[in-house]
């Protein structure tokens, strides 16, 4: 029989091994992409990927611009303005379900609803619209979790000082949820940058620098998908797939750092 201290040691060992495994896995994955891709980071690939990067950033920006206010206000509504009635339960269930829908279904919906039914053109705008829906649950959930950590005492304290609900939200709730919101934003950025299935039918295949949100384009991920499927799409063939994959990883890392920097500056100022 295992005695108590053996059990503790075993659990410690298991958690340790699991962590090591995870770190190794991340390094292998990233390392593989870096090793394979670094040789293709040349002038030609750079030229090829500039429009892709710009398009990707445009989709990220517009989708967040739509999803952030919607998500934050929904979360505040769900946490502050409602009691746990049937309507709220239905809403929560919808949000959770939205999170579980495979992205190819979003792609199908975007194509049939935005393009065929409403009659929008294939464009960066349409792609951003569908991506804002895809990331909405991430924003809502993370904001809600953050609001939950604010003590009821402090909300009541603010109201008892004659502050309105709006002021309380503005001055007590949002400033102290900022970490949760930022967390949601980081997850959302990762999702948008990496998404293929949801947008590939509605964004087009153009690989030139877009001039407006009404233009067609390719994001890094959709282009990557095309190249893997059909290497002749790129002058470098399958090789540029690795190059683009590497750029994609770098963009995600850079955007996350940027968000953290904004958060840091915001806190320093506040």
């Amino acid at each position: 029989m295992l005695n108590r201290s053996w059990g503790v040691t075993l659990i410690k060992l298991l958690t340790y091994l699991a962590t090591i495994l995870l770190v190794i896995l991340v390094f292998c994955l990233a390392g593989f992409i870096v090793i394979q891709g670094i040789g293709f980071l040349n002038k030609e690939l750079f030229k090829e990927s500039v429009p892709l990067i710009i398009t990707t950033l445009m989709v990220v920006g517009l989708a967040l611009l739509i999803a952030l206010p919607l998500g934050i206000f929904s979360a505040i509504y769900l946490q502050i303005y409602t009691n746990n009635g049937r309507f709220v339960k239905a809403m929560r269930f919808s949000i959770d379900s939205l999170n579980g829908i495979p992205s190819i279904i979003f792609g199908l919906f975007a194509l049939s609803f935005f393009i065929y039914y409403i009659g929008l053109n294939r464009s960066i705008l349409t792609a951003s619209l569908i991506m804002s829906i895809v990331v909405l649950p991430l924003i809502i959930k993370n904001t809600e979790e953050a609001i939950k950590t604010i003590k009821v005492d402090q909300i009541q304290g603010s109201l008892a000082l004659g502050a309105s609900k709006f002021t309380t939200i503005n001055r007590v709730i949002i400033p102290y949820c900022i970490d949760g919101i930022i967390n949601g934003v980081i997850l959302a950025i990762g999702k948008i940058v990496g998404e293929t299935a949801a947008i590939m039918f509605v964004i087009g295949t153009a690989s030139v620098i877009p001039h407006s949100f009404m233009d067609q384009g390719s994001t890094l991920a959709t282009k990557l998908y095309l190249i893997i499927q059909e290497p002749t799409y790129s002058s470098n063939g399958i090789g540029s797939a690795y190059g683009i994959a590497l750029i994609l990883l770098l963009i995600v890392v850079l955007l996350n750092l940027l968000v953290k920097l904004v958060n840091y500056l915001f806190k320093k100022r506040g």
């Binding site: 402090q154 304290g157 004659g162």
Partner: peptide, 16 residues
């Protein structure tokens, strides 16, 4: 009303 009638709670609840 709450401007005229202040309240102090059971647990100290200063804002962060």
């Amino acid at each position: 009303l709450r401007k005229k009638v202040g309240m102090v709670f059971q647990r100290p609840n200063p804002f962060p």
